[in-house]
Design a protein around this nucleic acid. Structure first.
Length: 824
DNA sequence: TTACTACTGTTTTTT
DNA sequence: ACAGTAGTAA
């Protein structure tokens, strides 16, 4: 990506408008008929229904390139919306690869980034303060906690987390607080209404917007100020939306506002607008912008955060003259994998039939494995990856391991480390979610925006400055009495009633440091500001002096954050330089010219993926990628392991009661299956320890939905049953199968369930017996009575295995079978 | 009044 | 095993 910035394509200045490769015919070569139709389609709104692996990204990038090359659209007239910032970056580079550097001068971003840009620009235009904090889910929860405490809501009945989630849903539906307050009935809704309006009030006072606000406020802005809407309407003549099935109501309305609502305008003006927008005088009528959305209802997996497939299902009703193009040919997977995917997804009701096909042949069978427990499952995956690499010519980078929840990655990490399988976990405990990183960012946010309550309160007493709950409450009281922000009240802490002199001194120290660093932030780049505030506040010193070994890692993470800031600064400077050099496109006022603290914070808030999906570096063998099924959307791998195929895990326990949620889980399964190009593995564990206790989980209901003739089972549940208890034979093991678990069936199966799965003693013994051989010298363990220890030696095997363990104060031999011991 | 230790429920998925 | 809470020591 960076290389592209540094090495502009070689071309004579005169041909800059038509660089090699932007010949329209060239752009259409290698596309099938449907793809071509989608690329060249002009005029009416277009819905591209793209099955998994049907080359939808290609169609989108080629369409953009085609607009630029064949239809004389300028890059400034295009707004493309993608699901992640990473996808946006890739799309920009791909278009640039097709039409040259001017392809980078489009708005390609997520909904949230686009809204931030619009809001910032409009705030500046109106002469308002344009620095605002962006609150993520955790910040929102913290703010809601303040609100709930203020309103005296019972934290049991109304936990802040749930209030924040409900408010988020309301905002996604564009229900603002006054509307909701007016219609709220019953105590629960009234409490929510109160919380909602108080929360909004506090957000505004903090000059903060949460993720949902970004969309909602932009929609309101466009709806309330027709001249603003007109401005963007004139500017953006082409709106393209990727992953349309994952848009929520607010995003749908935003799209409508951007496209414009004047279909009655003469359509020939479109052509004028496209070729020479400056010829259109202000006030001349302008038709709607050209809209093109791409999506697949079968891959809608974000209903839990407000996405509605309604948007894609009803597209033709929302935009009456719309056309639809279906892409069914799959260029990614073998027919075996596609058949499996088709058979799973066809179980969903209310679905437009779609049949993926491929001409790449049947390929290998799907490989299945039933492990005794989650360690065995990981063990088998690791061995199989080894085999694929050694015997079948795959690289680790070709392989992906998917699971339903982030917590499941731990076992794989343990085993992969032991086996020496190189891996990378994408997502999970993300860099930006670590305490020290969030603290450091809170300092920066408090510097950029002193009114940001959540950030200020987060770091006010970190490190300890003798400012406790009591003192905070006094300042809060002062703030509401004087009707000023919490940050402003801190400056006048001395006036607070009932505050202790110790706290006043602590607050004085704090405000002095912040004022100093704030001054510095006006001129210095973010990385220097960050280093300064970490040093001045004593935050870094406290970590460095600590003897907790974890804190060394925290210091490293902070250094990492400093280099992220430095990279940001360098990137902005480089982009500014590249912009100057790129005369064809002219200066782009949208591109930020100078690195700023606000810009850095914005990037950090919106670009979640610091842990990037490893790029395929071709030559080197790379690493195995591990991620949740949700993160896997939009990616593809030659080899895919779908793990944890158990009812309760996947589909997740919480979604099994509800038909709609269950269908979403099924779509998630469909997404997982269709990520695989050549090989698909499915695995499950008969027992899995969750929250301390071993749990018996029946086979995922999605497994029997796969055609059994496509699966080659390397190990089945029979192996487990005959191994644990001789008495349980093959026939009865059929009780494992199927969605209706033994729990709900007749008395006979209840007894069986009790015997097999639900008796903790038996299952505990089974998993202990398996865990015994996996302890080896050097392993760290935790003993319920003796605490942390390290294995010195191991003796015996099976139920008689013993280990010599060093607990620091004493070293002892322990019979592992009965020991309350866990491997770390 | 603040700070430290011990305990408890907790985790679905994410821009 | 994590973070937020509750109880206690200073």
């Amino acid at each position: 990506m960076h290389a592209l910035f540094e090495i502009p394509p070689v071309q004579p200045a005169s041909s800059a408008r038509r660089p090699p490769g932007s010949d329209p015919d060239e752009l259409l070569r290698g596309l099938n008929a449907q793809q071509r139709a989608a690329v060249v389609h002009a005029g009416s709104p277009l819905l591209i229904v793209a099955g998994a692996g049907s080359g939808k990204t290609r169609v989108l990038t080629h369409r953009i390139a085609y607009l630029l090359a064949a239809r004389d659209v300028t890059p400034g007239q295009i707004m493309a919306i993608t699901f992640t910032n990473k996808a946006a970056g890739e799309m920009r580079e791909r278009v640039a690869g097709l039409v040259g550097p001017r392809g980078r001068r489009m708005w390609v971003s997520t909904f949230h980034s686009a809204c931030v840009r619009i809001l910032r620009a409009e705030h500046e235009h109106a002469g308002l303060k344009s620095t605002f904090s962006i609150y993520d889910a955790d910040d929102s929860r913290r703010l809601m906690q303040l609100v709930a405490r203020e309103l005296d809501l019972d934290p049991k009945r109304y936990p802040a987390r749930s209030l924040a989630a409900q408010v988020s849903n309301l905002k996604n539906e564009l229900v603002d607080e006054s509307t909701f307050t007016a219609r709220a009935s019953g105590p629960a809704e009234r409490a929510l209404a109160e919380a909602y309006s108080s929360y909004q009030q506090r957000l505004r006072q903090a000059h903060a917007l949460d993720f949902d606000d970004l969309i909602m406020t932009t929609v309101r802005l466009l709806q309330t100020f027709p001249d603003v809407a007109e401005h963007y309407h004139r500017r953006f003549r082409h709106i393209l939306v990727d992953e349309y099935q994952d848009t929520n109501h607010a995003q749908y309305v935003l799209i409508k506002e951007l496209v414009g609502r004047s279909p009655e305008a003469p359509s020939d003006l479109d052509d004028v607008a496209a070729s020479a927008p400056e010829l259109l005088a202000d006030g001349a009528p302008l038709g709607p912008a050209e809209l093109c959305v791409v999506g697949d209802a079968d891959q809608s997996i974000y209903a839990f955060r407000g996405a509605t497939i309604r948007n894609i299902m009803e597209f033709e009703r929302d935009f009456p003259d719309a056309e639809t193009i279906l892409l069914e040919q799959n260029y990614r997977s073998t027919q075996t994998i596609l058949n499996a995917a088709n058979r799973v997804i066809e179980r969903n009701s209310e679905r437009k039939p779609k049949n993926l096909w491929s001409d790449s042949g049947p390929g290998e069978k799907i490989v299945g494995y039933v492990a005794d427990n989650e360690h065995d499952e990981a063990d088998w995956v690791a061995k199989e990856i080894d085999r694929l690499v050694d015997d079948e010519g795959y690289k680790p980078a070709d392989v992906a391991v998917f699971y339903r929840t982030n917590a499941q990655s731990r076992v794989f990490e343990d085993i992969f480390i032991r086996f020496g399988v190189p891996y990378k976990v994408v997502g999970g405990v993300r860099f930006y979610e670590r305490k020290e990183v969030r603290d450091a960012l809170a300092y920066l946010r408090a510097i950029a925006n002193p009114d940001d309550v959540v950030s200020v309160r987060r770091i006010l007493n970190t490190p300890r400055r003798g400012i406790g709950e009591r003192a905070e409450a006094c300042v809060d009281a002062l703030a509401s009495k004087e009707n000023i922000s919490f940050g402003a009240a801190l400056e006048r802490a001395g006036e607070a009633v009932g505050i202790s002199s110790r706290a006043v001194k602590g607050i004085g120290d704090f405000t002095t440091i912040m004022a100093e660093v704030r001054q510095m932030a006006a001129t210095e780049p973010p990385e220097d500001v960050l280093e300064a505030v970490l040093a001045r506040s004593g935050y870094l010193a406290e970590l460095e002096e600590s003897d907790d070994p974890q804190d060394a890692g925290r210091v490293e993470n902070l250094q990492e954050l400093v280099s992220v800031a430095r990279e940001y600064t360098e990137r902005i400077q480089r982009a500014a330089a590249a912009g100057d050099a790129d005369e064809d496109a002219g200066p782009d006022p949208e591109i930020e010219e100078t690195p700023s603290l606000a810009g850095f914070l914005e990037q950090v808030a919106l670009v979640a993926d610091a842990d990037e999906i490893p790029d395929d570096d071709g030559e080197q063998s790379g690493v195995v990628t591990m991620m949740t099924l949700h993160t896997a959307k939009g990616l593809e791998f030659p080899v895919v392991f779908l793990t944890g195929m158990e009812d309760g895990v996947f589909p997740h326990m919480r979604s099994m009661g509800d038909k709609r949620e269950l269908e979403e889980e099924r779509r998630l399964a469909y997404v997982g299956i269709t990520r695989a190009r050549q090989r698909l593995y499915i695995s499950r564990a008969v027992t899995r320890s969750a929250w301390g206790q071993p749990q018996y989980n029946p086979e995922s209901r999605f497994v029997p939905e796969l055609p059994s003739e496509l699966i080659d089972w390397k190990r089945t549940a029979d192996a487990y049953t005959s191994w644990t208890r001789g008495g349980v034979g093959r026939g009865e093991s059929a009780q494992y199968r199927g969605p209706s678990s033994a729990l709900t069936n007749g008395p006979k199966s209840q007894a069986l369930a009790g015997k097999l799965g639900l008796d903790p003693k038996l299952v505990g013994a089974a998993s202990e017996m398996r865990q015994v051989p996996s302890l080896s010298p050097g392993d760290r363990v935790n003993h319920d009575r003796h605490g942390l220890g390290r294995v010195v030696a191991v003796q015996g095997s099976g139920p008689r295995a013993q280990a010599q363990i060093d607990f620091g104060d004493q070293t002892m031999w322990i019979v592992l079978r009965h020991a309350p011991i866990q491997k770390l």
